[in-house]
Design a protein around this nucleic acid. Structure first.
Lengths: 341, 341
DNA sequence: TTGTACGCGTTATCAG
DNA sequence: CTGATAACGCGTACAA
């Protein structure tokens, strides 16, 4: 059906070797021969077969983006889409194709990591959304194919990661609240199986400690989504009515918390301040606009590709840790100390 | 490096043919031989090469999802992500791999459609975000590989599409406004190069016509994003101060319009009603919550895959037209006739 | 039931 | 500068 280099060879009266050389820009070929071959290839509307090339070259110019729990995980599209865009754009720029695959903690038990990679001859893999105990984490390290994890601080021989300085991000947010006069600050964290949760907890603790508030640790573990934010607010305030600020490990939880606070008759930020994490689109559309810690999601994607491509060249890659940025909007403010006491 | 059927054959003392047959579940093979082969394959940790298989089978079990203007187009992730999820999930379910590729009106001129398809031996393609004058539209129809367009009402021999009944969606929204007493209804449409724009315009017109409001057509063409919604509101109200309702071809434009209206000192919905289109997440987070026409985005994806897979089987496929659903929230309401006059 | 031989489209090796 | 020839990993007539 489709025209191959064999057809071109025939039409040009040369061997396939020569055609291949002409097409791939080798130097040891007569300029005229090349021109003729190129012209015929053009006329015949020749398109190279990446498949065949992959088979013989043993590399596919393809990277896999494996996302665990794409639909349900973390903030769903609020977080994932930008990362995917970044990965896609940069992969395209660097001449790689992108295969999108999804999995889940369960799926990971039935389909081995290497199965996915080998089937498609993936040159490298970017892994997104894996939890601390997921099977793939081990398999990745044992695998011979380069991999970069996003938001999972694991590295190895052919393995690196890109993430945010989550500790610093949480620290900035909580330190800001403290500067605003808050002394009783609750923390609605993500679930324990996310690496970022531990890091953000550390940032929260650090900020409290710096302010001599060590005994004031109030943590609730949610699962990053809105409903758990509501629950967190309810629980924390039931146990600790003196809380004047809430720091949340995701914007979605912050929004859930704000909804709950409103239902409780508390005004944000007059009665209680709220700061989120992620800076998803919603954050500046809700009322009041949500103060939050911005994550450069698109960059996560582009950087991950950069790292994987370097890994592919055999270079050892240091992890990439991006900087958070605290954005203060309307949901946080000074604690009304004077009025209250 | 990796273990092949050749290795298995050697280890099992049979020919590669036998191995191939055993692995692929053929019947004409001795049960014991099969067991032995399977066992050895297992022990050797064999993984089949999809690449090699694709080469010989001439199909890759891969479908391409080609998105034009992924980052900038239409509502960006608000629309795309869910579709991608649907495509991905259903493709996985049906045993297909997914290659994600992006393009743009400009890119389409430099990289021919068939280039993309052939390089990866795509079995079929789902095309998203193409405009009325995009080059790929023609190429798709000439191509021999099956394709389904999303939101582009074009069909052919090996080509079908899935879309919303946009005309009906717009009609429902505008008819609803009319039932609420509105007589002067502006329409902020998307740009002219989107197929859906024309369809929604028809729905708007139909509703006006049914109410004997033919002369009341007030249309502004935006480009689906927030800023153009603001501009639309400004322009329309400047020229037609008597407007008491605005129907917008996207939620983003509706949100932009509401922002502008607020700036103009108009209250929604007391002074003017607003209805959007899409039902993106933002719609029910903004204040007032946005009335809108819901699109089953995830279904767009799954249906597209279903259609493409049937097309692959050689079946002729009818276009899929999904039903819109009007959701009335807070941004629209009865026209305050009595108070005003 | 099993094996031989060939082909898929391409690149690489090595002579000429 | 060019051309046989052999891979790459797998499926499949055809034979045995």
């Amino acid at each position: 059906m489709a025209v191959t280099i064999k057809d071109i060879a025939k039409a040009a009266g040369v061997s396939v070797t020569t055609v291949s050389r002409a097409l791939n820009g080798y130097r040891d070929i007569h300029p005229n021969t090349r021109k003729r071959v190129l012209k015929i290839a053009q006329e015949l509307n020749y398109r190279p077969s990446g498949i065949a090339r992959s088979l013989v070259m043993k590399r596919s110019q393809t990277i896999g983006l494996i996302v665990s729990e794409m639909t349900h995980s973390r903030m769903g599209h609020h977080f994932l889409f930008d990362v995917i865009c970044g990965v896609n754009d940069q992969a395209t720029t660097l001449g790689y194709d992108l295969i999108l695959a999804t999995t889940s903690p369960h799926e990971q038990q039935v389909v081995p990591y290497m199965e996915l990679c080998h089937r498609r001859q993936l040159d490298g893999v970017i892994l997104l959304g894996v939890r601390t105990h997921d099977p793939y984490l081990q398999e990745v390290l044992q695998s011979s194919i380069p991999c970069v994890l996003i938001d999972v601080p694991v590295s190895g021989e052919r393995c690196s990661h890109v993430t945010l300085d989550n500790r610093e991000g949480a620290h900035q947010a909580v330190a800001h609240l403290i500067r605003d006069g808050h002394r009783h600050i609750g923390f609605i964290n993500g679930h324990r199986e996310a690496f970022v949760s531990e890091e953000r907890l550390q940032g929260y603790r650090l900020a409290l400690k710096e302010a001599g508030l060590t005994g004031e640790e109030r943590v609730f573990y949610g699962d990053f989504d809105e409903a758990s934010g509501s629950e967190g607010a309810r629980r924390l305030l039931a146990e600790h009515p003196d809380l004047t600020a809430l720091f949340c490990a995701s914007d979605l939880m912050a929004i859930g918390a704000m909804r709950e606070l409103k239902a409780m008759g508390k005004k944000v930020p007059q009665d209680i301040s709220v700061i989120g994490f992620d800076d998803i689109d919603l954050a500046h559309y809700v009322t009041p606009a949500l103060s939050t810690v911005h994550q450069p999601r698109y960059q996560f994607g582009t950087q991950a590709v950069d790292v994987i491509v370097n890994l592919l060249k055999g270079e050892k890659e240091e992890p990439v840790v991006l900087a958070p940025e605290l954005l203060i909007r309307e949901s946080s403010g000074s604690m009304p100390v004077l009025e209250k006491r």
